[in-house]
Design a protein around this nucleic acid. Structure first.
Length: 420
RNA sequence: GUGCGUGUAGCUCAGGUUGGUUAGAGCACUGGGUUGUGGUCCCAGGGGUCGCCGGUUCAAAUCCGGUCACGCACCCCA
């Protein structure tokens, strides 16, 4: 039996890792510009952290978590998302006492036991950001703007749409829920099995059911946006105003329902048509109740998470060529003496930030040239017996196919001068 | 978790329906043509227990069953 990876878990190979770096670097750069700092938190938490945050009736908690017993009997879970752990750390490390505003971002692998598909894995990477402290709508707008800037930077906005809505808060949502139940109950028998169950557990989720019949019925349902309390409405309007002011394009979709229970007020999704049924690329919203729910002070927060695999998939469409790795210099050597001389030269160049490759054994010049070409070397330094005798290296410009002899003890400086 | 489809060299795929001598191609890889010069060209070579297990058969890549993986849709979501 051949050894292999677990279903739904995959390797990210060197040929695609530069694309990942491009995406991760862009996120870091932009998030840092917006005042965020990275936080690294454990992959494993007490199950309770997620159960209490996400809501016990959510699919993630009900059937997708990797949960197991520790040796002492406590229940542990591999994180299915990042927010719960960040908030746990925020509380545990008393970050609220250090500053009124905490801007945190994270990246790492998340775990959900779903049926794997393209762009959907059991072990997958997310980058997320949490802005904890302010409850003002300007913070929602800043966070969403930051997210959109990231997609601009990675050239993905052509494939994306930003949808926003408001879910109301503790004042208006319960009343709205009742209204929904009132609306759906008479038509209960026309709803799909799933939605009949949702009517009890979480009537909001009926709104984004994909079942044709449910969609029809939901189309006429009262909208949360018409039932916001004054404060929530003001908040939502201010968010929209702020986004418009900085030119972030959005559409209002009152049917947005997040899969996690902790959201309040602003919710948003960045979606695409390019990835089949995996249309969500990033999503987030405000979660004013969560910090307190997990045992911390009553502190507001907004956040989002994005799926890196899906972004990589889109990125491949935007920039199909990718990001090939290129070396600056290839040193081709002929003969044992030349090889011995080439080695310290390679090390010295690398010391000076020049990327260098060379063969380890004795290969024909031709095959070394081929390798230099394949590695995308800008220059090949040829060091054979002739050059050794004269104390020079033959420097070949690979793009112009021109060659020039340069004294071996001057070649490093000469190369650096040429580069700058 | 449900349904449908696919699974042959590192990659993309022929062959399979009509089982039958050493299972093919292109790309990639290695070497040579040019005894010291890449990206083009030519030649040669290496690489496959035909996803895995079992069944039918004198004989299975080919037919059947199961299983695993991937893909698509459902579901769910980032």
């Amino acid at each position: 039996m051949k050894i292999k990876s677990i279903r739904g878990f995959h390797d990210i190979l060197p040929e695609s890792i530069r694309r990942w770096h491009f995406i991760e670097d862009a996120a870091r750069r932009i998030f840092e510009l917006y005042g965020f700092s990275e936080i690294r938190i454990p992959v494993l938490e007490f199950t309770d952290v997620f159960a209490r945050s996400l809501g016990t009736t959510t699919d993630i908690v009900e059937k997708e978590m990797y949960t197991f017993e520790d040796r002492d009997g406590s229940s542990l879970t591999l994180r299915p998302e990042g927010t719960a752990g960040v908030v746990r750390a925020y509380i545990e490390d008393s970050m609220h006492a250090k500053s009124g505003i905490s801007k945190l971002y994270y990246t790492g692998m998340m775990f959900r036991h779903e049926r794997p598909q393209k762009g959907r894995f059991r072990g997958f990477y997310q980058i997320g950001a949490e802005l904890i402290g302010p409850q003002e709508p300007a913070s929602d707008a800043e966070l969403v703007t930051m997210l959109w800037r990231f997609f601009e930077e990675t050239e993905l906005t052509q494939f994306l749409e930003l949808e926003i809505s408001s879910l109301g808060d503790q004042n208006c949502r319960p009343q709205y829920k009742e209204k929904l139940v009132e609306y759906f109950t008479p038509q209960k028998n026309d709803l799909c099995e799933n939605c009949q169950r949702r009517l009890q557990a979480n009537p909001l989720r009926i709104l984004d059911c994909k079942e044709k019949k449910c969609k029809e019925i939901a189309a006429e349902a009262p909208s949360m946006l018409d039932n916001l309390c004054q404060e929530c409405e003001n908040h939502f309007n201010a968010v929209k105003e702020n986004l418009t002011a900085v030119g972030v394009p959005f559409v209002i979709n009152p049917k947005i329902v997040r899969g996690l229970d902790y959201y309040t007020r602003t919710v948003f999704e960045v979606t695409t048509q390019e990835l089949g049924s995996q249309n969500a690329v990033a999503a987030g919203g405000r979660y004013d109740g969560l910090v307190e729910e997990l045992g911390g002070p009553d502190i507001a927060a907004v956040g989002f998470a994005m799926g890196i695999e899906r972004i990589v998939l889109l990125q491949e469409k935007a920039i199909p060529k990718g990001f090939p790795k290129k070396v600056d210099v290839f040193i081709a050597h002929l003969g044992d003496e030349a090889r011995k001389a080439a080695f310290p030269l390679a090390i010295e160049l690398r010391q000076k930030d020049v990327s260098v490759e060379m063969d380890y054994g004795n290969k024909s010049l031709k095959s070394q040239m081929k390798r230099a070409d394949k590695l995308g070397a800008g220059f090949t330094f040829i060091l054979g017996e002739e050059e050794l005798e004269k104390g020079v290296v033959k420097v070949r410009n690979m793009n112009e196919s021109s060659e020039e002899d340069i004294k071996i003890n001057e070649v490093v400086d000469a190369y650096q001068k040429f580069k700058s």
